[in-house]
C-alpha cells in the first residue's frame, strides 16, 4: 500500500502554480502593508518621544511647539480624545442599539425600507460633511443656547461623534441580534413573555458579545475620527475643564499642525500618532477577544 494523497504534478500546472503565487503574494501585500505602516509610524514617532521623555510627553499639559522654549505635553489631547470617545459612546450606543432592535426585531417592512438605507447613507457620508454640518448648525446652536463664547469644543465634538458611531453600532448589533437562534425567542414567547420582554431578557443577552464588539468598533471610529472633529473642537490643546471647553484631540492636532510644523514639531506629531496607534491596537486586542468569545 502506498500513500497517494499527494496531488499529481504536471507540466501544464506550472502556469497554474505561477498564477496561484500571484494570488498568494497579493494576500501577503496586506501583511506587508501593516508591517510597513507600523514600522514607519514608530520609526518616525518613537525617537521624539524618547527625546522629550515619555513622562513629559504623555503627562505634560503644555503643547507649545512654536515657542522659543517649546513644550510637548499631550495629556490635554489624550484627555480630549478619551472624553470625546466616551461621550460619543454614551450617547451613540443606546440610540444605536435601540435602532438595531427596531431593524432586527420590530420594524414592519415599510419602516425597514426607510431605516436601512438611512443607516447606510449615514455610514457613507464623508466626515468633512459631518464636520461642516457641525460647524454650521451645532456650533452656532451651542453658542447661542448655552452662551458659550465660540460654540466649539467638547460638546459639539461629542454630538457629531455620537451621530457618526451610530451606523457602526447599528450594523453590527443588528447582525448579532439576527444571529440569535429562533428557538430562544420561541422558548421565551411560549412561556408567556411579551415580544419586548423577550427582546430585552433573551435576545439582547444572547447577542451580548456582538453588541460589545460593536461598541469597541465604535470607540475605534470615535477616537480615530479626524476631519469631523477638527471643524468643531476649537483646536486649542488645553486641558478640558467643562463640556463647553475648546479642546484639540490627538487626531485634530496632528492634522491641523502638519500643515505648518517644522521638522521636530512634525516628528512630535508622529509621536502623537504612535500614542493614537497604541490606543487602536489595544482596542483591536479587546475586539479580538470579544469576537473569539462570540464565535465560541
Amino acid at each position: 500500500m502506498k500513500d497517494v494523497s499527494v496531488i499529481s504534478q504536471r507540466k501544464g500546472l506550472s502556469y497554474e502554480k505561477a498564477i496561484e503565487s500571484v494570488f498568494f503574494i497579493s494576500a501577503l501585500l496586506m501583511v506587508l502593508s501593516v508591517v510597513l505602516i507600523f514600522i514607519y509610524i514608530f520609526m518616525e514617532g518613537v525617537p521624539p518621544i524618547l527625546k522629550i521623555g515619555l513622562g513629559p510627553f504623555i503627562l505634560g499639559t503644555q503643547w507649545t511647539p512654536t515657542y522659543t522654549t517649546p513644550q510637548y505635553g499631550i495629556l490635554p489631547m489624550i484627555m480630549a480624545s478619551l472624553i470625546g470617545m466616551m461621550g460619543a459612546i454614551l450617547v451613540g450606543v443606546p440610540i444605536g442599539i435601540f435602532t438595531a432592535i427596531m431593524l432586527a426585531e420590530i420594524a414592519p417592512r415599510p419602516v425597514t425600507r426607510i431605516l436601512k438605507p438611512a443607516i447606510e447613507l449615514l455610514a457613507g457620508i464623508p466626515s468633512v460633511v459631518y464636520g461642516f454640518f457641525g460647524l454650521t448648525v451645532i456650533v452656532p446652536f451651542i453658542r447661542v443656547q448655552l452662551k458659550s463664547p465660540t460654540g466649539t469644543g467638547l460638546l459639539a465634538m461629542i454630538i457629531i461623534l455620537a451621530i457618526m458611531v451610530i451606523p457602526t453600532i447599528v450594523n453590527i448589533t443588528e447582525n448579532s441580534l439576527r444571529a440569535v437562534p429562533k428557538e430562544y425567542k420561541e422558548g421565551s414567547l411560549a412561556l408567556g413573555a411579551s415580544q419586548i420582554e423577550t427582546i430585552f431578557k433573551v435576545t439582547l443577552p444572547a447577542a451580548k458579545s456582538g453588541i460589545l464588539a460593536s461598541v469597541v468598533l465604535g470607540m475605534g471610529r470615535a477616537i480615530g475620527e479626524t476631519m469631523a472633529v477638527i471643524m468643531v473642537c476649537g483646536n486649542i490643546p488645553k486641558m478640558p475643564q467643562s463640556l463647553l471647553s475648546t479642546v484639540s484631540p490627538m487626531t485634530a492636532t496632528i492634522a491641523k499642525d502638519m500643515s505648518y510644523a517644522g521638522p521636530f514639531h512634525r516628528s512630535a506629531l508622529f509621536g502623537i500618532g504612535v500614542v493614537l496607534f497604541v490606543f487602536i491596537i489595544l482596542l483591536n486586542l479587546v475586539l479580538n477577544l470579544l469576537v473569539r468569545k462570540a464565535s465560541r
Binding site: D3, V4, S5
Partner: peptide
C-alpha cells in the same frame, strides 16, 4: 484531510498516484 491508499486502475493504468487529474 483526505487520505487514500490502495489502487484503482482505469484500462490498466493506475489513477490514484501520479496522474493528471484534469
Amino acid at each position: 484531510h483526505v487520505r487514500v491508499t490502495g489502487s484503482i486502475t482505469l484500462d490498466g493504468n493506475e489513477i490514484l498516484s501520479d496522474v493528471d487529474v484534469v
